[in-house]
Design a protein around this nucleic acid. Structure first.
Length: 137
DNA sequence: GCCAACGTTGGC
DNA sequence: GCCAACGTTGGC
């Protein structure tokens, strides 16, 4: 069971938008980065991730679940781009800010902290546990 | 709005 | 196959 992090600009597509999709979830399309794509290809049905708001808020705000494994991105011209579908599971009682993650010793190796540009990232088991605790779950 | 970091592209 | 130029992302 692996854990992930999905980044999105909330003024384009935010947590509330994902919640509005309900159980069907949303195709996580538009990713045009090989690293991010490869992480999505590695995702298994039912795995969990964080939903992070970049630019505005700069905090992880909710937990999401993979509801469809990697499939061709319907918005891509090139078949090499795959994506998964995710749905909202629950909001974090206490959103985890980037600032907080940078301060937290347990999270100092998070990809989010060290490579801010990668839009789909893995989260280690230890990081996941630490984040849930900080988030009030 | 600026700029650093990073990835991609294309000329050689 | 190298590397300069360029575009994009995202924190500040």
């Amino acid at each position: 069971m692996a854990f992930w992090l999905f980044k999105s600009e909330p003024d384009v597509f935010g947590w509330d938008d994902l919640v509005a999709r309900g159980e069907a979830g949303e195709e996580w399309d538009g990713v045009r980065n090989y690293q991010a794509r490869n992480f999505m290809r590695a995702m298994k049905l039912g795995e969990l991730g964080l939903f992070y708001h970049s630019n505005i808020g700069k905090q992880a705000v909710g937990i999401v679940q993979v509801v469809a494994e990697a499939h061709p991105d319907s918005t891509a011209d090139d078949p090499k781009w795959d994506c998964v579908d995710i749905k909202a599971v629950r909001p974090l009682p206490r959103p985890l800010s980037l600032e907080q993650a940078k301060r937290e010793p347990a999270l100092k190796d998070m990809v989010l902290v060290n490579n801010s540009r990668l839009s789909v990232q893995p989260v280690s088991d230890d990081e996941w546990a630490a984040i849930l605790k900080l988030a009030g779950l």
